[in-house]
Simulated assay, not measured.
Amino acid sequence: MIFIDLRDKVDSNALSKYYSILTDKMDDEKKKQIEKWCQDYLRKDNGEPYSFEEVVKADYSELQKLKKQIDDNHLDQYNCFLYNHNKVYKAENKKRKRKKKNENEKKRNSCYIKDTLYNSLSSKNKEAKLLLLKKVGISVCPYCNRNYIFSNENVITCQLDHFFSKEKYPILAVSFFNLIPCCSTCNRLKGTNDFDFYPYDQKNKAIDIMRFSYKPINSDFLRNKNSIIVETTPTEDLYSDQLETLKISKLYELHNDIVFDIIRKSEVFSDVYINSLRTSFPQIFSSSEEVKELLFGVPLSRDDIHKRPLSKLTQDIVFEINEARNDESH
């Protein structure tokens, strides 16, 4: 639901550093296996093979091409390189006779990239995860715009969603642009579902996939929040199921109190009053827009929607109220 502009944030140096940290402690034999698989099965448009480094650094358009190759060629059937070899585990089982059979079976079927390399982002390769989070640089979940996801060296409050599921596409499990910082609720709800909107997409910006509005159901809506219904409308039908997966409509129905406050503030604080506040406090406000942002508690610029929870809701409702006023004045 939020577009995240990474054009000036993530460059080739950042991607190289991420890959270097990620693979620095990888076993040499495992690296060879992964590289060989990429060369055997993944091809660029010019026919040349992908390297694992190129897979890790792949942007959205490249990720889509890799996904299509995997789907079209049923490459999930040829992922033996991803999985730990039975011979290794037979040797381990001799040393660990006390281990239960089902535990050994679980290990035997574990996937190196998604179960070891990806999990290392929370342990020995935590530096790579922190680099990714710093470069993406968002404070609010891009899927719901409801929850803060602050992260730094001391605390990480977000989870990483795999836009293309790591279960279906384990080779993409640590690809930089396949990892979307999000809240735990959205990560759980999205699961392995495929979405048509991508938070980093420059062309089809996620912010444009839906719009919030409100509907008064009783005449006392200026005094009673329960007389207001929050409505969610996708801009295209193809987004309906995905918004339903994230339960956006049901979750935002709970925020009728926010809409209630926005409507009341819009009634009390007229444009004339807002302008008077700006002129009365020039040391605080440089524009009427800054007064409105203080009033509504969120940035009112589309470019800053990722900075505060419920910014999308607030912006849409404020816009709707202003549009209605403009129509009345004409």
Rank of each mutant, 00 (worst) to 15 (best):
Q202W: 07
E53N: 12
K9V: 08
K68V: 13
K95P: 08
D5A: 01
S227E: 00
V55E: 00
Y19L: 05
S122E: 10
L277T: 05
P49Q: 08
V140M: 03
N193H: 13
K25C: 10
K36N: 15
V318M: 06
Y214V: 06
F52A: 01
S120N: 03
T232W: 08
L189W: 07
I284D: 01
K32V: 12
N226F: 12
L132C: 14
E127S: 15
F319T: 05
L179C: 01
Y89T: 04
V230S: 11
I180W: 03
D220P: 05
K203A: 12
R146L: 06
Q33F: 12
I229K: 03
N256F: 12
P199E: 04
H74W: 10
A14M: 12
L313W: 12
K205P: 01
A173H: 02
K94V: 14
D316R: 06
S20P: 04
M210E: 04
K129L: 10
N102R: 05
K25W: 08
R278I: 05
S227C: 11
K203E: 14
K124D: 15
E127T: 08
T233A: 14
S288A: 01
E320P: 11
R146Y: 00
R278Y: 03
N152K: 00
V88E: 15
D5Y: 01
I321P: 00
E92Q: 04
S288E: 03
L6D: 09
E293N: 06
S20T: 02
E253I: 07
V298C: 00
F164A: 07
H330D: 07
S276A: 15
T23L: 14
I180F: 04
Y41R: 02
N256H: 15
L42V: 11
K97I: 10
F260V: 09
K166W: 06
K106R: 10
T192V: 15
S12D: 14
Q77C: 14
D27H: 06
A91G: 07
N218W: 04
V298G: 02
Y118I: 13
E53Y: 11
C111H: 10
E290Y: 04
S110W: 09
S120I: 05
T245Y: 06
P181I: 03
T185L: 10
D327W: 06
M1D: 05
K44P: 05
S51M: 10
S12K: 15
P299D: 02
E323N: 05
D45K: 07
R325Y: 13
D59C: 09
I248F: 09
L313R: 10
E167K: 14
N125D: 04
N104R: 14
L222C: 14
S288G: 01
D237F: 11
L313D: 09
